[in-house]
Each structure stands twice: as structure tokens, then as C-alpha cells.
Computed example of a mutant assay.
Amino acid sequence: MGNKVIVSNRLDGAVLAILPKFIGDAINTLPALALLKQLYPTQRICILVRPHLTEIFSRASQYGLEIISDDRHCRKKHRGLYGMASQLKHQNFALAVLFRGSLTDAVLAKLAGIKNVIGYAQNARRPFLSHAFKLDQCHHYIYRYCKLVNDAHGRPFTHFSSPKLTAQPSTLTLSETQCNVALYLGGKVKGTRYYPEHLAIQVVQHISTLKNINIFLLGDQSEQSDMASLSSLALRQNVSVHNLAGSMSLAELVDNIGAMDAIVSIDSGPMHIASACDVPCVAIVGHGTSPWSLVAPKTDKLIALTHQSTSLNELDMIQDVSPEKIYHALSTLLSEHC
């Protein structure tokens, strides 16, 4: 393998994992973190995460992780690279696993005095890594993360588990006699992944014809105006929806998705949250930030609707997934799981 195998029971000190910055990518590191916990059952497993992601991992307590906010990215108490390295240096980390391809993260681990640093040899990082591996761009993201841990430790594992989040009881008033369905269709800020309003309203109309259905719209603060417009369109069509866009913390988003009977989502964070919470999901896949095969959730409760567009305009691709296809896929999921 080209690297000296790390023997976990000979390592004295805590373990640090530096996580990706996006919700879905961060959730996909959970199986690799579970492998680390098996290798180091009595040691601290700490995760360095962007401040906005700390709430996500408050719903992952079963992994036994200690959360450290990456204050390099915090406006209120910003730390520079050296300040963050100084904070980490005092925590006796014996091992760091870099789940991002960032050169800065590799430098951070070096400045923090961490002897064993595992990561992919990309972006000029090799000199800062004690265990450098070649990245196979064809591997699924979950596989990539688990492979880092497994290969560095002599490949003791043959399989990994799927990501799991544990939702707490939702504060939403949900009907026990209705099927509760959430829609995350994105806002214009999502670019080519945004499901346009003229099609989104048709999805809402189709779904509203299902018997005993309760519809919720999801979105963050940047998508509030888009969801308010969609909600108004629905009201003019005499369709009742609950617009939750911009009103939830990330922890509450996990809880609310976890309380749903099903969700319809574009290729984004809520899709990964649904999968990790074992909630059936219809995924609408247009032109994404990564190839679909590399990020598709590993669950049998997912129906992925991928586009077959021949348009040379990337914005057109997601529009190839028709409202009728989404309606039929959701109906199938509800009949199987609701």
C-alpha cells in the first residue's frame, strides 16, 4: 500500500476527523467515523466541522463523537489558521483523518503537531501527510471516506454501514391519520439543481390529489422568497401547504424530515438527511455538483428520477423530470412504506 500500517492499539492519543463543508458530504462521512470508533473504542473521536454543521451532528450521538467547531469559518469568534492549530495542539491528537481535499486542512494538521495524518494525495498535500493515498474519482463518496480509514489501518474491514441520524420528536403538529410529505425543490440559489416554479406548482397540484395528504415545503433562508411564491401559487389553486422555509435550525430540519412519511427532494442535503433518517425519498436529479453515481444515497427506500435530457443547456436538464414522474414515484413509495 506504500504506507506503514497504523496499529490502533499502539496509538496513544485522541483521533481528529476534519469533515467536508457541505451537509450531504458531511453526513456521508458517518460510516467512516463508525469504523474509526471500532478501531479506537476507548479514545476520543473528535470531528472538526463548520459551525453551521454542528447541529447536524447533535443528531448523531450514537457514534460517540466529540464536536469541535471549526472557528476558521465563524464570523463571531473567527480564528485564523494558526489560532485553530494552537487550539488543536493542546488536545493531544495522535491521528488526523482528512475527509476534504483541502491543502489548508493538511497544513492545519501539521501545525497542530499531529504525527499521523491520513488523506488523499491531491492539491499538493503529499508533503503534509504521513499516509497519503491516491484518490479514485470513480469511487462513491462514502467509499472514499471509508477507504481512507480502512487502508491506513491495514484493511481490517470488509464492509461499511449506511449513514444514520437519529431524529428527535418534531415540534410540528402532524396528523396521525394523514400521510405527511415534505418537498424540497430548492430555490434559484441552487442553480442547475433548482426545480423551476412552473413545474414545482404542478408537483404540488398532483400530490394534493392523493388521499389524506399533508404537504410541507422545506428551504433555508435564501429560499424563503421562492417557497413563499410557490406557497401563494398553491393557495390560488386551492391547495393547502405548510411553508417551513427559513423557519428551522439544521437540527430541527433533521427532526422534521425524520417525522415525515416521505420526502421529495432535489440532489441536496435534505435528500441525504432523509436517507440517514430512514425516510422514503424521491430524488430529482438534474445537473449536480458531482456525478449522481458518486453521491446517490445507499438505501432501498429511494426512487431516483434521473434526467434523459439532450439539451445543451444545463438549466434544462432537471426539467426533463416531469411532475407526473415525480407524482407516480411518490405514490409508489407511499403505497410501499406509508
Rank of each mutant, 00 (worst) to 15 (best):
R144S: 11
K147N: 12
Y141F: 08
S161V: 10
F160D: 02
P127F: 10
V97Q: 06
C146A: 13
A96N: 11
R155L: 05
A132C: 01
Q122M: 08
Y194N: 13
G187A: 03
D136Q: 02
Y141A: 08
S130E: 02
S170H: 04
L165W: 15
R126P: 02
G186V: 09
S161Q: 13
V149W: 13
K147F: 01
A124K: 15
L111Q: 11
G187E: 05
A152F: 03
H153K: 04
Y195A: 00
L183Y: 12
L129S: 05
L185T: 10
L172G: 02
L174W: 13
F157P: 02
K115I: 07
A167V: 03
Q178E: 12
L148T: 02
F133A: 03
Y120W: 08
P163V: 01
K110M: 03
H140A: 08
V149L: 06
V189E: 11
Y141W: 03
G113V: 08
L148D: 05
C146H: 11
N116H: 15
Q137H: 11
V181H: 13
H140D: 07
A106S: 04
R125T: 09
A167Y: 04
F160E: 04
R100L: 04
L174Q: 11
R126F: 10
H153S: 01
H139M: 08
I118H: 04
P156F: 05
F128C: 05
S130Q: 01
L165E: 09
A96G: 12
L185D: 09
R100F: 00
Y120D: 03
V189M: 12
R125P: 12
D136Y: 14
H153R: 06
L95G: 05
P196N: 00
C146Y: 15
I142V: 14
Y194I: 01
A182C: 08
L111T: 05
A167R: 04
V189D: 13
N123H: 15
V189G: 03
T158Y: 12
P156M: 01
S102V: 01
S161M: 09
D136V: 04
N150S: 02
H131P: 02
A112P: 02
A112H: 00
P169Q: 10
Y184A: 11
K164T: 07
L111N: 05
S161N: 05
P196D: 05
